[in-house]
Amino acid sequence: MNEAAPGTLVAAIDRLRIRFLDQYNAQHAQLIQLGLQLGEAGDDRDRTQQAKHILHRVAGTAGTLGLKRLGQAATRGEERLHQILGQDSIDNNAARRAIVAFLEVSADFVTA
């Protein structure tokens, strides 16, 4: 790594983290929407899959950008939804609980 790297790289990650948080509201809102739709007409497996995909991405990105608490909550949520998707039929209540548990943490990272 070049000599100027450590400080400048930290600054670059800081800038990325700020941009990630600026755009994070949309993912939080999408998860609320998917949680609300569970149990209504339509494909709950697809909704659970979509929620899992959002959590998967948040888990990888947030943790790498230094938002460890958000990343860990997303990992737990993703694992729970993975278990639910492994069953023959989707347990709506369990899926909703997993999403809500994540949203409790996620709300702290949503900017006004």
């Binding site: 070049n2 100027a4 670059a12 990650i13 990325l16 950008l65």
Partner: peptide
Amino acid sequence: FILELLDSLVSFMD
């Protein structure tokens, strides 16, 4: 975000 992070990282590596 991951691609951008990797881009930043690699640009700082010789």
